[in-house]
Design a protein around this nucleic acid. Structure first.
Lengths: 333, 333
DNA sequence: TTGTAGGCGTTATCAC
DNA sequence: GTGATAACGCCTACAA
């Protein structure tokens, strides 16, 4: 039972054990300087009292910051996977992960500011939408690593997938199967949007095909709308690349409702290779982003910058791979 | 430019402005005790230096904790909405929100422990899977509020939707339409699972119908599997209630693939009323959980317990409502 | 093996 | 209107 709701402190443990605070510190940290007997007794009393070291006091005392701040959007499954990867990399290395969510009530600026006031040594921003100038200002004080968006701002590093090359892989896969009419659902505003579009155009040109771009969004719903617009055409393309898996799923639903079979009549390709692509009734061929690698790279860069062991770099481009499933096949003659 | 990468402190501002630290404190907090002229100058210099108050030091100095800890799973869209609601309630009231993610690399116990060592005054657990005894132990030191799971543990409060009544609403809606063969996809292990099942059984009995329960999971994939198992029966039920919207979506996909039309041949009902249910090509009738209300209630309880203004209560049950869309209709004769 | 002193950044109290 | 001083909980020296 704690006294008056206040949390139990190191001094409480020391008093209860009849030793000094420093000794308690030695024991809980497991450093040499105490007899095994004392160690045992102090540990037992600490456990009885429910003592938990105060991280904030520890951090305040510490010279160098040992916390990595992460600004993320809770609604994004992609972010969830990245956060997981960041924990996996940072905690074993002894770095605390401090989270700040970007929500409607708590924007990106508030999230970053909260991370700053928690004295994080570096910030990983999974959803950089702020003006480059603003980010540069933050970066002049704390190392900033942006994930999944190519931000050109002074002092800001970014880590993202090689979207351009990913689209090239997608187009080459389809053209290798014999497709000549390949439509790309583009979403210019989304992260990686410009790169994906550029990669598509370049690859189509290289293969001697005419580009066929439809502007859409990154949601399943917008994919569905796009699917309807394709069905309204005189003739369907033989293959469609969704902006991402969500979008491809929406396209598929629209096609299915119209009785168009995938891949018999139209081949369908997603991007990101999320759980949706792998679901048994989708089985999309998809351009895979290596989320674990992205998270690990961002973490390691954050730590390197924090420790000052390494200078600033601008970009880290992570390769993509193509996961081939049953949604792509040669076109019907 | 900061010196040596160390963050700028109140003392730095004081020195640069040629005043004492206490005066800087007065200015940044906006409390009376400084001339408007000085105020202006200090503020300007603080901004130039990029001074941000150290929250950890503030908290250390403060007598009572003013932080609410939240343990959540980033992969859950439901949690994202709750976190949003918690920010919306806590921050305007002057409480800091401290997040700790529950991931594969960082389990529930680690998340709670991290919250404790950050000296949060109360913990909101969105994903309580720990043994009640373990939770009770935590609750003996810090107020614990569990969301979306009825946890019977000493000292633990929980806030959840009235799942039992929600299922009753669902069954009554269907029986009102004339359905007599209503199948429920149950997921006993998920949050609210037992309550939903109980509500279904009670309502079916009250309506004089035989219960028809299929065990499934909470994912779209498991719904798809369940859909296949229903198709293998001699005759389909005239209505199916998915364990949640994901599950219902999976069932729908399986039915559609087999050429079964919703709601013409089978009525389909989801639970949670997420974006999936509202999507144009699903349009599920769904039992709505009031996520904003859940988040607000959990936050207010956490604050009340932290401030000690209010004693412990056990449960807070939030009513559900039925959102009726086009996936439910009278059965075919 | 154990205890003492000092300081991390902040704020509250009290003199000036 | 302003400036010293102490204290929050912890850790690193250093002294006993």
């Amino acid at each position: 039972m704690t006294k008056d709701g206040l949390s139990v402190t190191m001094a409480d443990v020391a008093k209860a054990a009849g030793v000094s605070r420093a000794l308690v510190s030695i024991v809980v940290r497991g450093v040499p300087g105490a007899s095994e007997e004392t160690r045992e007794r102090v540990r037992r009393i600490a456990a009885e009292l429910g003592y938990v070291p105060d991280q904030r006091a520890q951090a305040l005392r510490a010279q160098a910051p040992r916390a990595i701040g992460v600004a993320f959007q809770a609604v994004q499954p992609f972010h969830a996977a990245l956060v997981d990867g960041i924990y996996q990399t940072c905690e074993p290395l002894g770095y605390q992960v401090v989270l700040s969510a970007i929500t409607s009530a708590h924007g990106e600026a508030a999230a970053i500011s909260s991370l700053q006031s928690n004295r994080c040594g570096a910030i990983i921003d999974l959803s950089a939408r702020l003006a480059p100038k603003t980010l540069a200002q933050v970066a002049s004080r704390i190392p900033v690593i942006v994930v999944a968006r190519a931000v050109r701002a002074e002092g800001v590093e970014y880590v993202c997938s090689d979207d351009e090359r990913g689209l090239k892989q997608a187009v080459e896969h389809l053209s290798g199967l014999g497709h000549r009419a390949i439509c790309f659902c583009s979403s210019a505003d989304s992260g990686g949007g410009p790169e994906r579009l550029r990669g598509y155009r370049t690859a189509m040109k290289a293969a001697g095909m005419a580009a066929d771009v439809v502007e859409t969004g990154s949601t399943e719903e917008s994919g569905y709308e796009t699917g309807l617009s394709l069905l309204a055409r005189e003739s369907l393309p033989t293959a469609v690349i969704g902006f991402n898996d969500n979008c491809a799923a929406g396209v598929q639903t629209a096609l299915k409702e119209a009785g168009i079979k995938v891949p018999d009549e139209v081949s369908l390709l997603g991007i990101d290779d999320t759980g949706i692509a792998a679901a048994p009734y989708h089985q999309f061929t998809s351009v895979r982003q290596d989320v674990a690698w992205l998270g690990k790279t961002a973490s390691l860069r954050a730590i390197a910058r924090l420790e000052g062991t390494d200078g600033h770099r601008r970009a880290h481009i992570i390769p993509t791979t193509l996961t081939i499933r049953s949604s792509t096949a040669p076109p019907r003659r």
